[in-house]
Nucleic acid binder design. Structure first.
Lengths: 232, 232
DNA sequence: GACGATTTAGACAAGACTGTCTAAATTTGT
DNA sequence: ACAAATTTAGACAGTCTTGTCTAAATCGTC
């Protein structure tokens, strides 16, 4: 993305302004599609928010529907990257299991679910999912279809390492997500963004219950997990 | 609703056909608003699906926005009634705690969340919630604001009766809902309706984890809760 | 069967939106 | 500074939608 000086095939790489405009169009379109829905989204408004003329949008994307598809693909890609980056921070060899899992849950929420991209993608899936079955089937495969098993694998490793007592890692992974988000459901429904301390609270409560259900009952006791009750 | 013979002020009560049309309009409008969104909803289409003429819709509701508000109010009212009716079936004196809680969770899902009204209301909240803050604030008060405490109270009673080991009934109630729906999230996102066995599976897994976390560890043992491991 | 209220079909004006087109202005690479 | 490509502003046709209006048809009740 940064090279392209070098004179390498100057007709393949478009000028920098071109890509910059493409990005600002897709960005603005994401916001407007989310706020107004596909039918209510106004191309002139998108153009104004992107700081380009309407014609430029048509030059780049052809028509409204193609623009919408581009928006969803972009969001899916970025969100997936964020989720996998966060999964890489999963505590495979936890020091303090409760604290580490809470940290993981908070990172997942803040970096992937509550951020701009996550919020927008979620809303577009909810509002337009039924209208573009194949597009969102693709999202389902690329998104939950790949991230959930990845999280499940991490929990399986944790169980194998003696930190947890889990029968079905897939079920445990889904329940982990359900628990740490249990208190944010209403906010998500209305399209709001929970505040940091709400996210932390929900994650803390969720992880605590998760460990009550799946934590080893002081049998192996991996390390020392005394000071795990630090709250805010 | 059934009386109105008796000649009591014949100009106050409209003919029966009138109310019937009002209902079929609101019904059809709910479906169209959900499928197409507020902006995409077409009054002519609503009229056609309701089996009335466009003018009748304007006679009844004035304009598109008022019709939308009427739809949301109707759905909220019906859903609330269903939820409270289901909460009334909560197992206060469980015979088999796992079986009884699974049954309650399944009833809640089938009668309140996965049925037509629940699905429609959820989608309207998600798609149009930001556009009508005061309308959905009202829903929030009437809906989650009243049903969640009601469920929490039932869990508190269960804890008081020695069936559960719960610190915060409100947290437990939210986590209960999060757990029993953990496996249905993706389906809900895309607006789909989970099949009966998926609902049962998710509820069973969720209740099992819930009881691993909050079930009494054979201390008081209220009655005989031996055969609580019966599965499907 | 007759009366009053409601509903219907269709026409209609006013406005909004998409997507195209053109000529001028701007940017980019050399 | 020059030439090519891109962007811009605006006009434009065509379509769609909302909400109103009117006259005829239908319904419910006595």
């Amino acid at each position: 993305m940064v090279f392209m000086r070098l004179g390498a095939s100057p007709d393949t790489f478009r000028p920098r302004g071109h890509e910059a405009k493409r990005l600002s169009i897709v960005d603005a379109a994401a916001g407007v599609f989310c706020r107004e829905g596909f039918a209510g989204a106004n191309i002139d408004l998108i153009a104004a928010e992107a700081g380009v003329s309407r014609q430029t949008i048509y030059n780049h994307h052809g028509d409204k529907e193609k623009l919408f598809v581009a928006v969803v693909r972009d969001l899916t890609e970025r969100c997936n990257a964020g989720i996998f980056a966060t999964i890489a921070t999963f505590p495979d060899q936890p020091n303090d299991l409760e604290v580490d899992l809470v940290g993981f849950a908070v990172r997942l929420n803040q970096n992937c679910i509550c951020n701009r991209d996550g919020k927008f993608l979620r809303k577009l899936i909810q509002t337009e999912g039924e209208r573009y079955p194949e597009l969102f089937a693709e999202w389902r495969e690329q998104g939950p279809g790949r991230t959930w098993p990845a999280i499940a694998a991490r929990f399986a490793r944790l169980a194998y390492g003696g930190y947890l007592d889990i029968e079905d890692p897939d079920v445990a992974a889904r329940q982990f997500l359900g628990l740490v988000n249990a208190e944010l459901q209403t906010t998500f429904m209305l399209g709001g963004t929970p505040r940091e301390n709400e996210v932390l609270q929900s994650a803390t409560n969720g992880v605590r219950t998760f460990l009550r259900a799946f934590g080893k009952r002081r049998t192996v006791a991996p390390v020392d997990k005394q000071s795990a009750i630090a709250s805010a």
